[in-house]
């Protein structure tokens, strides 16, 4: 499903060169639910951005669903993002001026679906997250948990094969976080591959597989020296 081989990402300024990812290797198979953890600045978000085709990378190879995405132009990357990837953001990233229906409609329009098809998908996905009766509401009229559910509905409406979640419960209280997590597990059970970046150790343990990133690399347990990191790694992988 997702294969990264020795992927490198360097951020450059006039004075500093930051190696965000160094020879990053990762394979995620279809149907997996992978949690990516690691300390701040470890490269988690860079990995997520590259995995989601939001950023390019300097070296290595990245295959998404069997397709080498290294040399795709912006238009192709946008198209691939739209068709294969669903995004869930920490801050929900709903468009405040649009009601729930129109928010979920955004990626479907870029996909070029006809009106009736879009309506059906929007209703189904909002139904799935339990908000079908509020589709004319604005995001500001919902709680944080409900907004994240809308974001999940938006991510799922296009029926993506791959769901990328960036700290999906980071802005939610524990009860809301649990409900969102349950929803993600339910979605994964239905066959959608999920990669979730999180700081939340408990949340990470709920995934089927846990990846620990440090210094821009996927780290093995033997490389870890910090006891907290070891605990986290062990907890995440049973």
């Amino acid at each position: 499903m997702l294969t990264m081989t020795e992927v490198k990402k360097i951020f450059r300024t006039d004075l500093v060169e930051t190696h965000a990812l160094r020879d990053f290797n990762l394979q995620v198979d279809e149907g997996e639910f992978v949690a990516v953890t690691g300390p701040s600045g470890s490269g988690k978000t860079t990995f997520l951005n590259i995995a989601g085709l939001l950023e390019t990378f300097e070296g290595g190879k990245y295959e998404l669903d069997g397709q080498d995405v290294s040399r795709l132009n912006d238009k192709k990357r946008s198209q691939l993002r739209n068709e294969k990837i669903g995004f869930i953001f920490q801050s929900f990233n709903l468009i405040p001026d649009l009601n729930l229906f129109d928010n979920v409609d955004v990626p479907l329009r870029y996909r070029g679906f006809k009106g009736a098809e879009r309506k059906k998908r929007i209703e189904e996905s909002l139904e799935l997250v339990g908000l079908a009766n509020r589709m004319k509401h604005l995001p500001s009229q919902l709680s944080g948990g409900q907004q994240q559910r809308v974001a999940i509905a938006r991510a799922l409406a296009g029926n993506p094969r791959f769901l990328l979640a960036d700290e999906p419960t980071g802005n939610l209280d524990s009860k809301m976080a649990l409900s969102v997590l349950e929803l993600l597990k339910q979605i994964n059970d239905q066959g959608t591959t999920i990669v979730m970046v999180t700081h939340d150790q408990h949340l990470a343990t709920q995934a089927k597989r846990n990846i620990y990133v440090r210094d821009g690399r996927v780290s093995e347990l033997s490389e870890l020296t910090d006891i907290n990191e070891i605990n986290l790694h062990q907890a995440a992988n049973g």
């Binding site: 912006d74 946008s78 990233n93």
Partner: peptide, 16 residues
Amino acid sequence: KKQIGTRRALGASQQA
């Protein structure tokens, strides 16, 4: 800006 970035992430091309 954030909204535009989100639209781009959701599949909007630069042209869109």
